[in-house]
Structure formats: structure tokens, C-alpha cells
Amino acid sequence: MDLAVPPRPKTLKIRGGQSDSSARILSYKIWEAIIQGKAGGHPADIKMMWVLGSNPVNQMPDTNKCHQAFKKLEFVLVHEQYMSATAKFADILLPVNTWMEREDYAAPWLGAPYYAYANKAIDPLGESRSDLEICTELAARLGIQGFNDKTEEEWLRHLIAEMPDIPDYDEFKRKGIHKVQLAEPFVAFKAQIEDPENNPFATPSGKIEIYSQTLADMNDPKIPPIPKYFDAEENWNQPLARRYPLQFISTHFRRRVHAQYDNLPWLRRVEPQALWINPVDAQPRGIKDGDLVKVFNDRGVVMTPAWVTERIMPGVVHLAEGGNYHPDEQGIDRGGNPNVLTSSEPSPLGSNVDNSCLVEVQRA
């Protein structure tokens, strides 16, 4: 990839930043980058994708644009445990093992004073390997020297040895958990409170910035220097709402972890994937509880059962994220995947906004 590209004029200057090169792609614009390439102003013409630890076809917004991008790629390599929506696009599909078939450790997602060690429960099934083993063997075949000189356990010992919180690897592995004994209760920003001069925040002023001069200097009305409410990009106040009058939302589902476990029949029976719709919206559309409905907008069409319920407000419908993308011959998704409908257009500062859009619903 050519890194000799002009700097971005709106790159945020923060402490520790070393480069303002624009040779990068926002994750939610990756489909456009693949489809358009350099001709569309992107830093590279992407030829291949190597996917591991992810299911982007299912979990990233604007699934049909994603479908188009994957078909343009010359080569797709995927590590997977089952035939996911992304795995179906693979030219080569490598069987990766599960977390139950390898050693690992983890810290809490949002931080807490303990660590967990995941002892391997069983040996890897069939010919499956860990991501580390796959990448190490591929590196050797590709002639990449010095890629990896350690086994899985050697890496774990090396990483944990550099962590002052865990004094003994073998004891940590035996117990499966290590609780960090704090000398005193944790207080957020304690150093900045007690000695702000020598402990500045990672902002241009070194302080908590309610008003950001950096954002003010960008002079972009969509990026105000002080927090301000904006309507969602697709909302009831837009002309688009005349065609698509329902605000669509998508949240996490208690029976899945994103798309994981969606292929378990007994979990699907316990809580089916279904569109939540208020009786106020269902009745004029002739929709009854359990009816198959068509949910659609300009980006795509999803067919899914309806759950007519007062647990969602009128004018709003809901479909949980993670439903497995399963298009029929006409490209209509039959798996209840909300990302067929969501937009990949990010917020002005680059955040994802794929949990809300406008749709219409009809009885199938």
C-alpha cells in the first residue's frame, strides 16, 4: 500500500500521535474501499481479504454492499468453526479450533481487578488448529522469516511474565483466576486530581475538555466543539420517512453472542428471531402475531416473523442483531439479519451508527 499520501486536514492532534497519514480506511467504509479502490479516493486497490476472529458479512452494516465487495475480491481466506455467512465467500476455509481447545487468558472486558485463565478442556478436534498455529505455518510457507519463535504456552508465559499483577504463571494456571489485591479502593483520575500539573489528560490542554478548541478549529457544523443533540441520519423528520415511516432499531439478543449460537435449534425455539412491532402499527398493515413479514428499505429486504407487542413504542420496530444472513435466489434475507437494512455511513467523527434506520413493513 502506498503510504506517501497527503495528510488529512482534519486529523485530530492528540498527545502521542506520530503520524497524520491518510493511508487508512475506516472500518465501516471498507466495502466502499474494496468496490471503488484508488479511483474512488481510497489508499489502495484491495485484492484479497484474510478474515479471522470475525464474521463481517453478518455483523457489519449494509450487508448487500458487503456482498458486492466480497464478489469483487480476487481471493478470500477465512478461519472458521462453522459455515458462517462470511465463510461461504471463502476461496480457502481453514478450520480454527475453539477457545475450549486451546490455552488462553483474559482480563474483564471493561476492566476489573482480576484475570481468568482458560485451561484447555479437550484437544483440538479433527484437523483444526489455533489462529497462532495457522499463521505460523502460513508464514513459513510464504517465506516470512522470524514471524514466530514461541509455542502457545511460551507466549502465554512471556506475556504474563511482563504483567506485574500476576506473580506466578503456574499458580494462575492451576487456580484459573487471579484476583489483584488493591492497597486501596480504585479512584478514577486520582493522579490528575491530586497532581494535575504532572498528570495531564491526553488532550491538547491537558485537562478534561467540555469545549474542544480542536473541534472548533475544524469549523464543521456537524462536529460541534461542545456536545449537542443531532437527529439520527435517518429519522421521522426527513422526506425519506414518507416511504419508510418506521424507525428501525437493532439491539443485542440474550440468547446469542452476536451471531454465535444462532445455529442451535433449541435456542431458536426458546426465543425465535422476530420483528417487534406495536399493535398500533401492525393493525393497519394487517399484521398478526406470528405472521411472516417483509421488512425493507433501499438497502435490502428481510423476511422474518412478526411479534406484535406493546413492549415497543408505536412508530418503532426492532430486530435483534446477529441473525444469520441467509439470502434466497432473489437476494432476500430469510435469516432475520438486521444489517441487510442498516447503513454503513458513519457519524461525522467516524463512529458506527448501524443500530437505527428507516424501514417499512408489509405482511408477506
Rank of each mutant, 00 (worst) to 15 (best):
D262V: 02
P305R: 15
V257W: 11
R255G: 10
G350T: 07
F147C: 09
H252S: 12
A282I: 03
I166A: 04
R269S: 05
F147N: 10
F70K: 02
A106F: 03
A23Q: 07
K47C: 09
I14E: 01
W307H: 15
G300A: 08
T151I: 03
A202K: 06
M163V: 03
H178T: 07
P113I: 10
T214W: 03
E127I: 00
G331F: 07
M1N: 06
N355D: 14
G290S: 12
F230T: 09
Y261D: 14
L77D: 00
G336W: 03
Y117K: 09
P7L: 05
R363G: 02
E329W: 03
L182F: 06
F75P: 02
F75S: 11
M303N: 09
M100N: 06
H42N: 12
T309H: 12
Q18V: 12
I332T: 09
E197Y: 05
K88Y: 00
K228A: 11
G17S: 04
S347N: 02
C357M: 11
G146R: 13
D195K: 11
A241F: 01
R141L: 12
L349P: 02
M303D: 00
P272K: 14
N58T: 07
D354W: 14
L292K: 12
K207C: 04
A140L: 07
A282F: 10
I312Y: 07
L77E: 01
Q18P: 00
D354E: 13
D220N: 15
P196C: 07
N148I: 07
K190Y: 05
F189G: 00
A90E: 02
E209F: 09
D217S: 14
A274H: 11
G40H: 13
K10P: 00
E153G: 00
F75A: 03
W109A: 11
Q247L: 15
E153R: 10
T86M: 03
W109E: 10
A139N: 08
L93F: 05
E127C: 00
D281S: 08
N55W: 02
V293F: 01
D123K: 13
L125T: 10
H258K: 07
S343I: 02
P284E: 10
E127S: 00
V340S: 09
Q260Y: 10
P124S: 09
L240K: 15
Y211I: 13
R24W: 15
V76E: 02
S344W: 11
E137Q: 13
I14N: 00
S356F: 07
P245F: 06
A87D: 04
